[in-house]
Simulated assay, not measured.
Amino acid sequence: MSSPRARERKPPWLRQFIPKSSPLVVTVCEGCGLYIIQDRESVWESWDCGLVEGDDLTVAIILGRPLTRVVWLPSVGHPLLRSVSGCAGIRPDGQYLAGHTCRLARVSVKPFTPPKMERPPGKPWGGPRLSKQEIAEFKRIWNMPYSRLKYEKAPTMVGQGDEKQTLF
């Protein structure tokens, strides 16, 4: 039995998204010839290649497409897919894959980019150095009631001010 022929080029980001060590598999759908992502850990499920987030998430919910959350594991270098039930468990800032339905257009074709590497713990931030006078001025303004802050003059230099502050 021969493998199905792809109708499209394989998206290059899939090699980074699903390395050989991942339990996920990139394959071609036998019915429509599009590349799909299969989760073969327990129940085999097929997902479209394209990250669903933002406005595409709204479209997927309206169309009633099943979704799975992408959880990136930097320690192992591949994603984990977590099922969501309908609209329950969906967060607007999450990243998802839409369930594959043969012969229907994909909800999204957006490529996946892995999250930035976090700073190792224990390293100092190394931000700007503030003088004691600047820290005292910050604390004074921070602790000031809003009613008084409205009429405070904006400082041109620390501790000075000759113009009205128009923040609010």
Score class of each variant (00 low, 15 high):
Met157Ser: 15
Ser147Leu: 08
Lys150Trp: 01
Lys153Arg: 11
Trp125Ala: 13
Val107Ser: 02
Glu41Thr: 15
Leu130Ala: 12
Ile37Phe: 06
Pro120Lys: 14
Ile141Trp: 11
Gly54Phe: 03
Gly99Arg: 00
Asp56Gln: 14
Glu53Leu: 08
Glu41Gln: 15
Thr156Met: 14
Leu34Gly: 06
Lys132Trp: 08
Ile18Thr: 09
Ser3Asp: 12
Arg5Ala: 05
Arg5Asp: 04
Leu67His: 04
Pro74Glu: 08
Gly127Ser: 12
Asp48Leu: 06
Pro111Cys: 00
Trp13Asp: 00
Ser2Val: 13
Ser2Glu: 15
Leu67Ser: 03
Val52Asn: 05
Cys102Phe: 04
Gln160Pro: 08
Lys139Trp: 04
Leu104Ser: 12
Arg65Met: 06
Ala6Ile: 02
Leu130Phe: 15
Lys164Ile: 11
Ala98Pro: 01
Leu81Lys: 06
Ile61Arg: 11
Trp72His: 10
Leu104Glu: 15
Arg82Lys: 14
Trp47His: 02
Pro11Gly: 03
Leu73Gly: 04
Val76Phe: 02
Lys150Asn: 02
Gly64Phe: 05
Trp72Ala: 11
Ala136His: 09
Leu130Glu: 06
His100Ile: 02
Thr68Ser: 15
Leu63Gln: 15
Cys87Ala: 15
Arg129Ala: 09
Pro4Ala: 12
Ser2Met: 12
Glu8Ser: 02
Val109Gln: 09
Asp39Cys: 11
Trp142Gly: 00
Pro145Phe: 01
Val84Phe: 02
Leu67Glu: 01
Glu163Cys: 12
Val107His: 05
Met157Asp: 15
Ala105Ser: 14
His100Arg: 01
Thr68Gln: 03
His100Val: 00
Gly64Arg: 01
Glu45Thr: 13
Ala60Val: 02
Asp56Gly: 05
Pro12Asn: 07
Gly122His: 10
Glu53Trp: 04
Lys132Cys: 11
Glu118Leu: 15
Lys164Trp: 10
Ala6Met: 01
Val28Pro: 00
Trp47Glu: 04
Glu134Ala: 14
Trp142Thr: 00
Leu14Cys: 11
Ala154Cys: 08
Glu118His: 11
Ala154Asn: 02
Pro23Trp: 00
Pro4Asn: 07
Arg65Gly: 05
Ile36Val: 15
Gln95Trp: 05
Asn143Lys: 09
Gly161Cys: 04
Lys20Cys: 05
Pro121Thr: 10
Pro66Phe: 04
Val158Gly: 01
Cys87Met: 14
Lys139Ser: 07
Asp162Pro: 00
Glu30Thr: 13
Gln133Ser: 13
Val59Met: 09
Leu14Trp: 00
Ile62Met: 07
His78Leu: 00
Pro114Ala: 14
Val71Arg: 09
Cys102Thr: 03
Gly50Lys: 03
Gly64Met: 00
Glu53Cys: 08
Ile62Leu: 05
Thr156Lys: 12
Arg119Met: 15
Leu149Glu: 10
Arg82Cys: 10
Cys32Pro: 02
Ser21Ile: 08
Leu14Gly: 00
Arg140Leu: 12
Ile61Lys: 08
